[in-house]
Amino acid sequence: MNRWARSPRCVSLARRELRQVLAEWDLTGLTDAAELVVSELLTNAVRHVRAPQDRLVETRYERLAGGVRIEVHDADETRPVVREASMDAESGRGLALVDALTGGCWGVSGREGVGKLVWAVVADDGHEDRPGSGPCGEQGL
């Protein structure tokens, strides 16, 4: 777990931290997808959260059989939604990318205190940590 100031700089720091965690867990094959997922989730927390600027965001990583659960906690109750971006839009595709990279294995939950946590599971291709089984099935998706 790490707490970050809500600043664009925290996104690169969180990616670096996740890279190190995945190397320690011998899950380096997931690095590219996991980095994109944490980048998108954390960028949303930095850009779109309606909370006092001094509120921190938090990242947590949990090792799973064949994968990693990535969590981003923030102090805003508003739940993110997947948007359909126009062809010429410069943003708005982040959650669609998370959905694609995780095979739909992501969601939003409440948390202790104020706000929410957005979670996603990045797993090896062909691994059973996908919707309907493993961590996603247990999340109630």
Results as ranks from 00 to 15, higher is better:
residue 138 E to V: 00
residue 2 N to G: 11
residue 115 G to W: 09
residue 16 R to F: 06
residue 103 G to M: 12
residue 63 R to F: 01
residue 41 L to F: 07
residue 28 T to R: 13
residue 39 S to T: 15
residue 108 V to I: 14
residue 95 L to C: 13
residue 6 R to V: 04
residue 133 S to Q: 14
residue 42 L to A: 07
residue 10 C to W: 06
residue 97 L to Q: 03
residue 62 E to F: 07
residue 41 L to R: 03
residue 69 R to S: 07
residue 131 P to G: 02
residue 78 T to R: 15
residue 84 E to A: 12
residue 13 L to E: 11
residue 56 L to R: 12
residue 31 T to Y: 06
residue 8 P to G: 01
residue 98 V to Q: 07
residue 130 R to V: 13
residue 83 R to A: 09
residue 98 V to R: 06
residue 11 V to G: 00
residue 13 L to K: 05
residue 136 C to M: 06
residue 5 A to Q: 14
residue 69 R to G: 01
residue 70 I to S: 01
residue 16 R to H: 13
residue 71 E to M: 07
residue 73 H to V: 12
residue 127 H to D: 11
residue 2 N to Y: 12
residue 25 W to S: 07
residue 137 G to T: 06
residue 69 R to E: 14
residue 106 W to Y: 09
residue 63 R to G: 01
residue 136 C to N: 02
residue 74 D to T: 05
residue 11 V to R: 00
residue 79 R to S: 13
residue 126 G to T: 05
residue 18 L to M: 13
residue 59 T to R: 03
residue 110 G to W: 08
residue 72 V to I: 05
residue 132 G to M: 12
residue 64 L to K: 12
residue 120 A to G: 08
residue 86 S to A: 13
residue 31 T to F: 08
residue 86 S to C: 02
residue 110 G to T: 09
residue 5 A to R: 11
residue 14 A to D: 08
residue 82 V to L: 14
residue 49 V to G: 06
residue 25 W to Y: 10
residue 101 L to W: 04
residue 81 V to P: 00
residue 89 A to I: 02
residue 77 E to D: 15
residue 95 L to F: 15
residue 133 S to V: 08
residue 34 A to Q: 02
residue 79 R to G: 12
residue 12 S to L: 13
residue 57 V to I: 13
residue 92 G to F: 04
residue 2 N to K: 15
residue 4 W to F: 10
residue 103 G to D: 04
residue 17 E to D: 14
residue 135 P to R: 04
residue 73 H to R: 15
residue 83 R to I: 06
residue 60 R to F: 10
residue 55 R to L: 06
residue 37 V to L: 04
residue 136 C to Y: 01
residue 69 R to Q: 15
residue 46 V to W: 00
residue 117 L to C: 09
residue 2 N to S: 15
residue 37 V to E: 12
residue 17 E to F: 06
residue 16 R to V: 08
residue 30 L to M: 04
residue 37 V to G: 04
residue 120 A to R: 01
residue 50 R to K: 14
residue 118 V to F: 05
residue 52 P to V: 05
residue 46 V to P: 07
residue 102 T to L: 04
